[in-house]
Design a protein around this nucleic acid. Structure first.
Length: 921
RNA sequence: GGGCGAUUAGCUCAGUUGGUUAGAGCGCCACGUUUACACCGUGGAUGUCGGGGGUUCGAAUCCCUCAUCGCCCACCA
């Protein structure tokens, strides 16, 4: 826009008939070529808006829920771009972790073996076996590096597909900034950040009992837990006091009887006071265990006294730690009872029973023990079925066991109260949208019960960049890890050799050995702000300083405890800042029956389907209609409305542009120049329309600043329909220059005023709708501004500009004029005649201000309503009308209707003859 | 058990610091080919604001309570 406020338009030929088909392809190609969404990086941090995009998992398919939340982000990105920000909007792909590992295994028929060397000539045994599982015995072992290469190969195909879909949806991503989480750069960042944590003492290793998944054979972090209902049985079992009295306990896990180290009751429990400090004997096994008191024992649960085993659950761990109990572990890492009979079971009967359970699964072992207890009479009654909540690994399907192992931990405020308080403080600093989502963060941080367990006993992922010395006697010296220098990262310790050693010294006394564990996938994902901004990267070119800390983290509400929290923790420890100012949480997508969409329910909608059917703008409209944090139903109806809106926008713009052309002695279909000079807007109705536009721009802008994209859309959309239904209808004749009933033509100034208002109005709508309907707005933008570049880098409309045009004319003038027209239309609608039917006479009634407004637009109203005779005006007050309505039913129906200040009533109307229908051509 | 959110027309949802007689779209009904739009236009009908209690001149809105739904956390004897 020029400084004189004149909007110069270069009008291109218009189509005879408009449609939304094909716009995605046309403009996606154009945007690719012109690189409108490329981050420029030529301003400082204040001119940049940076977005930490969630990298979708590239295994499998996207579903329509992705479309939903990514559209929310894209609306914001496009809005900020139009506000003049250099928007930094990268896309990542998450291909680090179990889903990808399993997929690559099945697709290529390979599995990782960290003992193998990298083979550059490796060819996988299978290719493209999607869908059918390759049995483990048919999988060929490969080195980690080979596995990563296969993963990159496979995901590259998916990424292409995903990228195409995102582009079709109109996401304004800078595709030159793409990353994937197992890629070299993210691996380097993850390892470097870990080494920094290690150097500062925030990363440490510990041998401790912890939750363990027996299927995946790995330790699991608190954040990856999921409680699920799991069926079990209560067994009432008798221990025996020294005098032989049975002491009954209740347990759901009798198979752990052999691992029992104590019985525990609450210190205040009078029933067991006499037993504290004494020992009891376990049934059959005959092992003596102490009866102890601990406040964590609950008097009203079961019989009030519990068997403490190492380890049945996390409370056992607490008791074991607090009461310094011995470790008597009988469950192995694969979830089976260990083969060797433990030395603490000494009785013959006990050892025989144990041998019977050895190497059995917990399920089978339980059966053996229960039968034995029933036979010996130590079980009271039958097992009572129960459903209890049990911890599962979120990706696993067997309950977690507790085993003791050496693991790496990262401080996250789970043990350090000061850090915990600092992280809570960061949570307060972060602006959550919607705000109530903050409590989920607070709940999580307050409920942490240990540091972040980051090591996983898996093979695919980012390796810990560590080796350990092997002593001369062949022991691994975990206490003195060997670290690489930062400049050689990323490394794989199973194939790379630490400085000062040679490959021949691997795993030999006096040499070194690799840390074979990999990091939790969140250990990489938690660093996406550092990854995308090229923290500490040589090729950064100052990118980090221009983009970090970032502005926005959009993400799902389900991963506040993982992705959001761990990112905050990492940035706090490494950069001493919050990684972003805002976080935007989208809701769930529910199917039309309000069930959450998920693969297992089989109700997932593939996003390409609705995009193809209704158009990308329509699907975006549906997504953008839902506020942040609010669940939304998959709603085809809403998409149809979006499609209708886009088509309406095309048609209204076509009209506004075609009508302006005749003035230039041009016909529709030809190019033309136009200059929409705001000083040419002189008619009160036109000014009122600009006044309302100013108000709409102000409201929409404020809503977008508050991350309320849905409210902004609603505001813009409502006014757009008013603009079409009322304003355009009112000024159509004037804009055409149509003479009135008396043959009087509108003045040139009046014609120009209408045409300019139409032009400036539609120019504004193109820009206001641009974040929501990027394709149709780009189409119309190019109809009116052929050489002006993309609407998506055009400036966002400013309320002040339109307010200046409006001068002091109030927006209510448009409302009154619109309601007056509606009143005239109602006469015809109720008489069931064509809108072309002339009105011979009518009286319009409105509040005094309304009368003034109607007078100011009377010619337009009369002509739009085809009033050929006298149009009278009569003043009423809102109060009068309401009183009249309730006091008497003798009034005209219209008088009884409740009115507000902008309502216009009608009476004494008289219709003429409907026009004769013209025969069809 | 603790917490968060929701409950408004047949459906999907707005409803601001409490303020006249609670709104929109879809769907429904009726009418209308009108030189932007039949992928359309015009007009109309539609409510125990989940229940109960309270504060107030006045409550969809604030407080208490109950119910239902969704989610988060805790609960493994």
């Amino acid at each position: 826009m020029a400084t004189d406020g004149i909007i110069h338009a270069h009008l291109t030929p218009l189509p005879d008939r408009v449609g939304v088909e094909g716009l995605e392809e046309k403009w996606t190609k154009n945007w690719d070529e012109s690189q409108v969404f490329k981050f420029k990086g030529n301003t400082d941090r204040t001119g940049v808006y940076s977005i930490d995009t969630p990298p979708p998992t590239v295994s499998g398919h996207l579903h329509v829920g992705h479309v939903f939340s990514y559209t929310h982000t894209d609306v914001m990105a496009r809005y900020k771009r139009m506000r003049g920000y250099d928007v930094f909007y990268p896309m990542g792909w998450d291909d680090n972790g179990l889903p990808t590992e399993r997929r690559v295994q099945n697709y290529y028929g390979v599995r990782v073996d960290t003992s193998l060397k990298y083979d550059p000539a490796f060819k996988p045994p299978f290719e493209g076996t999607e869908g059918k599982k390759i049995e483990a015995r048919d999988q060929v072992p490969v080195s980690r590096q080979n596995f990563i290469e296969l993963c990159e190969k496979l995901t590259a195909q998916d990424e292409k597909q995903f990228e195409a879909l995102w582009k079709t949806l109109g996401l304004s991503i800078d595709w030159t900034q793409t990353y994937h989480t197992i890629g070299e750069h993210p691996r380097r960042v993850a390892q470097k950040a870990f080494l920094r944590n290690l150097a500062r003492g925030e990363a440490y290793q510990q041998e401790a009992p912890g939750l363990w998944d027996i299927t995946f054979q790995t330790a699991v972090a608190q954040a990856e837990l999921e409680s699920r209902e799991y069926p079990g049985f209560y067994h009432k079992i008798a221990f025996h006091a020294e005098d032989g009295t049975p002491i009954y306990i209740e347990t759901t896990r009798p198979e752990l009887l052999g691992a029992c180290v104590a019985l525990i009751a609450h210190p205040d429990d009078t029933r067991y006071q006499h037993l504290f400090g004494k020992t009891v004997t376990s049934p059959i096994f005959g092992v003596k265990v102490p009866v102890l008191a601990h406040p964590k024992a609950e008097m009203d649960k079961g019989v009030g006294i519990a068997m403490c085993c190492t380890f049945g659950d996390m409370v056992d761990v607490e008791w074991w730690r607090d009461l310094k109990l011995p470790t008597r572990s009988i469950i192995t890492r694969n979830g089976r009872i260990s083969a060797e009979t433990p030395e603490w079971i000494t009785s013959e009967a006990g050892r025989a029973l144990y041998a019977e359970t050895a190497t059995k699964t917990t399920f089978s072992a339980r059966k053996v023990i229960v039968e034995a207890l029933q036979a010996s009479g130590d079980m009271d009654g039958e097992p009572i079925p129960t459903k209890r909540m049990t911890n599962f690994y979120e990706k696993g399907d067997k309950p977690l066991e507790i085993v003791t192992s050496r693991q790496w931990y990262l401080s996250n405020g789970g043990t350090d109260k000061k850090l915990n308080a600092e992280l809570l403080e960061r949570g307060k600093e972060l602006q959550f949208h919607p705000g109530f989502m903050r409590v989920r963060y607070d709940n999580w941080v307050n409920g942490l019960n240990g540091d972040w367990l980051v090591s996983r006993q898996r093979f695919f992922g980012v390796p810990f960049p560590l080796w350990y010395p092997v002593t001369d006697s062949g022991e691994t010296d975990y206490a003195h890890p060997i670290v690489p220098s930062e400049d050689i990262l990323p490394i794989d310790p199973t194939t790379d050799v630490p400085a000062g050693f040679e490959e021949s010294q691997r795993d030999v006394p006096g040499g070194f050995t690799a840390e074979k564990d990999i990091m939790d996938t969140w250990a990489t994902s938690s660093l996406t702000p550092q990854i995308v901004t090229h923290w500490e990267e040589k090729d950064s070119n100052g990118l980090f300083e221009k983009t970090f800390p970032m502005d926005l983290r959009p993400q799902g509400q389900d991963i506040i405890r993982t992705w959001l929290f761990s990112s905050v923790a990492r940035a706090h420890l490494e950069n001493h800042v919050l990684p972003w100012k805002h976080t935007a949480l989208s809701g769930w997508i529910l199917d039309p029956d309000h069930k959450k969409m998920s693969k297992s329910k089989g109700n997932v909608v593939v996003p390409s389907e609705p995009i193809e059917k209704f158009g990308a703008d329509a699907v975006r409209y549906w997504a953008a209609s839902a506020r942040l944090g609010t669940d939304a139903a998959y709603d085809i109806g809403q998409m149809k409305i979006g499609r209708r809106l886009a088509i309406k926008l095309l048609n209204a713009t076509k009209f506004a542009l075609s009508i302006g052309r005749e003035d230039e002695n041009h016909h529709v279909g030809e190019s033309a120049q136009a200059a929409w000079d705001p000083t040419k807007i002189t008619e009160p109705l036109d000014r009122a329309t600009m006044a309302k536009l100013a108000r709409v721009v102000r409201t929409a802008t404020k809503a977008l600043e508050d991350f309320d994209h849905a409210k902004a859309l609603e505001t813009i959309e409502t006014f757009f329909w008013e603009f079409c239904d009322d304003y355009i209808e009112l000024v159509k004749n004037r804009a055409y220059g149509t003479p009135d009933e008396n043959g009087k033509e509108p003045s040139g100034a009046a014609i120009m005023s209408a045409r300019t208002t139409l032009g400036i109005g539609l120019d504004a709508f193109a820009r206001l709708f641009a974040p929501y309907l990027p394709f149709s707005t780009e189409e119309i933008w190019h109809w009116m501004h052929e050489d002006a570049g993309s609407v998506h880098v055009a400036p966002w409309p400013e309320a002040g500009y339109y307010a200046t045009i409006a001068l002091k004319v109030p927006p209510e003038l448009l409302d009154h004029a619109g309601h007056a027209l509606a009143a005239l239309r109602k006469i015809k609608s109720e008489a069931k005649v064509s809108m072309k039917t002339p009105i011979l006479a009518a009286t319009l009634k409105a509040v005094p201000a309304g009368i003034e407004h109607i007078k100011a637009a009377l010619d337009d109203i009369a002509q739009a309503g085809r009033v050929t005779g006298k149009l009278e005006l009569a003043q009423i007050s809102a109060g009068e009308a309401a009183d009249a309505g309730s006091a008497s039913e003798a009034h005209d129906a219209a008088d009884v209707a409740p009115i507000d200040d902008t309502e216009v009533l009608i009476s004494d109307s008289q219709l003429g003859e409907p026009p004769v229908k013209k025969p069809k051509k």
